[in-house]
Simulated scan of single mutants.
Amino acid sequence: MRRMVIVGYEESALLDIACPADVLDAANRYGATPAYEVTLVSLDGRPIRCQNALTLAAQDRLDRLRGPVDTLIVAGGTGHARAAADVRLTTHVRRVAATARRVASVCTGTSVLAAAGLLNGRRATTHWMWAAKLARQYPEISIDPAPLFVQDGNVHTAAGVTSGLDLTLSFVEADHGPSLAREVARALVTYLQRPGNQAQVSMFLAAPPPEHRQVADLAAYITGHPGGDLSTRALAERAGLSERQLTRLFQEHAGVPPGRFVRRARTEAASQLLATTDLPLTAVARRCGFTSAETLRQAFVELCGTPPSAYRRLHRRACIA
């Protein structure tokens, strides 16, 4: 059997544990050979009180866990900062990871892998809300907040919460082939494995928090008017700021310059039209503020890793499935 170990801690996110576990369980029920043996562990074997106040029973102790381990998965959750600061926890994560075929994290579990030194010199992702902070804490790691999941060598990091489902489906496909992964996705009534380089968030979710009112207001305006004049000059005038001030504020509070935020917002708006209408690409581009279908295609490939026509086909197949 493939021994899959999920690491939880105080205030882990239940979905960060349940998504991988349920994918692997479904894979077993649909004939995974060799099958997956899933073990939930905490540092000292104590029950794991999740951030939603539900409590899970740990099946083993991380500090006494011995190999071989096929895949080590570290959950995220609101307790991730304390977990990352726990030297005993990160020491044993590093020890078990050294003998594992694969190492992974879900959501803010990335911070635990980072604290354990397992991401140094690697590209990784995490929940978009925490990406900028993690990048500041660990400049030796290349943090990409856009993808659903990232693989760098044998280390895999997934973005927010349910992206752990997509990551685990990719494990099933790598281990047993696309047919089984498809059956598992159908059984779980989910998308047929969203590609890892698909953007992890919709822009209306990714708008900066209202810590800086001007940036938050502009973000809301941008996402609500993708076809309008959203040049840096026009946005600066709307906010009563200089273009330099606007760029600095967006970089600080949104993590990207205003031009890139606009490009992402327009691409997200286009993805909604592609998924829900039969408008030709030229019409989609025009409505979303792109100068041409080719400009739309370039932005889509940059953000989603796939051209808009392929995105439309994938979305429709996923809905039918």
Rank of each mutant, 00 (worst) to 15 (best):
C50N: 07
S242R: 09
A299C: 14
A275I: 06
D144V: 11
G79A: 02
P209D: 13
A85M: 03
A199P: 07
A174C: 06
A239G: 07
T90L: 08
R260G: 10
E302P: 13
T78F: 10
A174N: 06
L40Y: 02
A85W: 00
Q151S: 14
R29A: 09
V284L: 05
L273G: 04
G160H: 08
H156P: 09
C50K: 03
Q272T: 15
V155E: 01
L113A: 03
Y311E: 11
A84E: 01
V69E: 01
R287L: 15
R287Q: 15
S42Y: 09
G79I: 02
T247Y: 07
P210H: 09
R29P: 00
F171Q: 13
C288V: 08
D16F: 08
H92A: 10
A75H: 05
A236H: 10
D86I: 01
L279R: 11
F290T: 13
A283R: 13
T157P: 06
V7C: 02
H92S: 12
S202R: 14
R286Q: 14
N52L: 02
F300M: 15
R123C: 11
E294Y: 02
C19N: 12
A270N: 04
D70Q: 06
L192F: 07
Q51D: 11
R64I: 01
I17D: 03
T78V: 11
V150G: 05
L218S: 14
D175L: 09
M203F: 14
T99C: 10
L314V: 13
V301G: 11
P139F: 03
P210Q: 10
A35D: 05
T157F: 05
E294C: 13
P68R: 00
A310K: 10
E183L: 14
R194C: 13
A100W: 00
A265V: 05
A219H: 09
L119Q: 02
L165H: 04
G177V: 08
A270L: 02
G117N: 01
P307S: 13
A285F: 07
V161F: 09
V23P: 07
E302G: 15
T78E: 02
M1T: 13
R186K: 12
A124G: 02
F204C: 15
S42M: 03
Y30T: 02
D16Q: 01
I48C: 04
R286P: 10
R2F: 01
R264Y: 10
Q214C: 13
Q137W: 05
R66E: 12
V161W: 07
S179C: 10
M4V: 15
R244K: 11
R94Y: 00
H315N: 14
